[in-house]
């Protein structure tokens, strides 16, 4: 039996346990859904308090961001995320944690080269490619709109 790299990689597959996907999906659905429900609650609360809808649309995600940052700072967010997986990653909580956690982690390297430079080490690609995608869509929209399609 020859043990070239390809054979070994196939051999190893039998030993590597797979992630428990059904359990992870259910946890993600429940926690992710609960975060969205919480956000919906804040949305209605702010409207009920008489704030303008345009402000409420911004204030609601900001509330989730602040709550995530506080939970990250107290060291409880990663415990929830370990259970929830995509449930905490996909809502804006995932983005907030991705910015807050390196900021805390790199405090020892100083405010400039530590917190400032490393804060976007995980979220940076989301910002770069998110902005790029919106620019591309903006150009497409410009031409489509010009021709009266949208």
């Amino acid at each position: 039996m020859n043990l070239d790299a390809k054979t070994y990689q196939n051999y190893v597959k039998a030993y590597a346990k797979k992630s428990p996907s059904p359990k992870n999906c259910i946890a993600a659905f429940l926690v992710g859904g609960s975060i969205c429900l919480l956000a919906e609650g804040f949305y209605r609360l702010y409207l009920h308090l008489g704030l303008a809808e345009a402000s409420v649309r911004i204030l609601t995600p900001v509330t989730i961001i602040v709550l995530t940052a506080i939970a990250t700072g107290f060291g409880v967010f990663d415990c929830l995320a370990k259970f929830a997986g995509a449930g905490t990653l996909v809502p804006i909580s995932g983005f907030a944690n991705a910015v807050t956690s390196p900021a805390i982690d790199n405090k020892a390297e100083g405010l400039v080269m530590g917190v400032g430079a490393k804060m976007f080490i995980i979220a940076g690609p989301v910002i770069v490619y998110g902005t790029l995608a919106s620019v591309i869509w903006g150009v497409i929209y410009y031409f489509l709109h010009g021709r009266g399609i949208v």
Binding site: K18, A81, G94, I122
Partner: peptide, 17 residues
């Protein structure tokens, strides 16, 4: 963790391996 993986408070799931 800081050097090889993610920040300590980063929320994610580890693989079984």
């Amino acid at each position: 963790e800081r050097q090889f993986r993610t920040p300590i408070e980063y929320g994610g799931q580890r693989t079984p391996t």
